[in-house]
Simulated assay, not measured.
Amino acid sequence: MNNVFSYNADIEKNAYLNWRTSKHDHIHNMIVLADGFMSAATLLAKQVLLDNVDKKADLLIFPILFNANHGIEVYLKAISWSLNILNNTGKRFDPHHKLNKLLEKNISLVNTFENDSEKLKTFNSMIDPLEKYLNELSSKIESVTDKGKEVYKIDFSRYTLDVKNEPQFYINEFRNVVVDIENFIVVFESIHTSLNNIANHYLYYNEEN
């Protein structure tokens, strides 16, 4: 058995980690990884639809959701980094994992940078599916403790227990907690396209100015 990090004689059976990335462009590299995570989510979901007689969807939904959410996070951080450069803030991106807060930061940065009302209207239209999804997600994983501390359990697709060893939202539910895979693909392909276009738009704007 060969090492995992090794060549196959058939070039079509190799994956090159540094073919799409560049040591000179870290924001571009983040977009590459974000694209990969979101593509993995939808490709796996489509594969499930081809044959789910063995109910593999019940297992694969966890890596599907993890990839989708992590892809969103990396896209939003890449967009923030570009916009922080354009707005001369001296910052990169917020280091936390709260997707709704990362989107709020992006909206704020776009509103600071853009003066054209039509461009703002287009941006708002593009992120509408993402806003709706993140609101839905927050209703499942976000809560406030008795002491007023916000809890955001984005690890729900990685572990069945949270950091305090409490069950995630779907564990103790009596009724089925379900994801419509067909609808998931429609929603996340839309989100993926919008985030990729926005991320590349501000990246190229930076490079041209």
Rank of each mutant, 00 (worst) to 15 (best):
M1N: 10
F5D: 09
S6H: 09
N8K: 09
E12Y: 14
N14V: 00
L17H: 14
S22Y: 02
S22F: 04
A34L: 03
D35T: 12
G36W: 00
S39D: 15
A41F: 03
L43Q: 13
L49A: 05
N52L: 06
K55A: 08
L59A: 10
L60D: 05
I61D: 07
L65Q: 12
F66T: 02
N67L: 07
N67C: 11
N67H: 09
H70N: 08
G71M: 03
V74S: 05
L76M: 05
I79H: 03
L83T: 00
I85F: 11
I85Y: 11
K91P: 06
P95Y: 11
K98W: 10
K98M: 13
L99G: 09
K101N: 15
K105T: 08
K105P: 12
N106P: 05
I107E: 10
S108V: 08
V110M: 01
N111D: 11
E114K: 01
E114Y: 02
S117E: 15
T122W: 08
T122V: 14
D128R: 09
K132G: 01
K132H: 09
L134Y: 03
L134F: 01
L137P: 14
S139I: 04
S143D: 04
G148W: 04
E150Q: 13
V151C: 12
F156G: 06
L161V: 05
V163N: 15
V163T: 14
I171T: 00
V178G: 03
V179R: 10
V179Q: 09
V179P: 07
N183R: 09
F184G: 02
H192L: 07
S194K: 00
N196L: 03
H201R: 07
L203N: 01
Y205D: 05
Y205R: 12
N206Q: 04
